[in-house]
Amino acid sequence: MPTPEQFEVTIPSDTAAGQAVQERIVNRLEELSFPARDVFGMRLALEEALVNAIKHGNGMDPDKSVHVSCRIDDAMVRVEIEDEGPGFDVSDVPDPTAEENLERPCGRGIMLMRAFMTRIEYNSKGNRLTLEKARGTGDE
């Protein structure tokens, strides 16, 4: 069994830097032969989470950073993403699948993370998100 990989990285509020972290994690999942659906879901969840942290959390402020810590082993990947913004109350985000919101162009990121991850959790302030994905069977 390969040894778990663990790393922490602090990136500027810049989506290109977010992409690099995303690539690093996704590449590792591919190396560990996680099923394609897991890799797809992880990439999507990381994209949504990092864009939220950079854009909505830090407001693209170049003086603010995003801290990412990640632990990947053969069975599970866990990523924590923390921004330096004021946080938010996740229950304030309107349901994007409600009839009246269906045609609104935003608000779907958190829903997609929930659907594709095994678990997602915000801290009480709302500026730190934990994403967890357990290895799927590959035939969901």
Partner: peptide, 16 residues
């Protein structure tokens, strides 16, 4: 192969 929620937003605007 990949599409994020921000892209979905553009598709909704396009549809409108």
């Amino acid at each position: 192969e990949y599409l994020s929620s921000a892209a979905l937003g553009k598709l909704i605007t396009m549809d409108k």
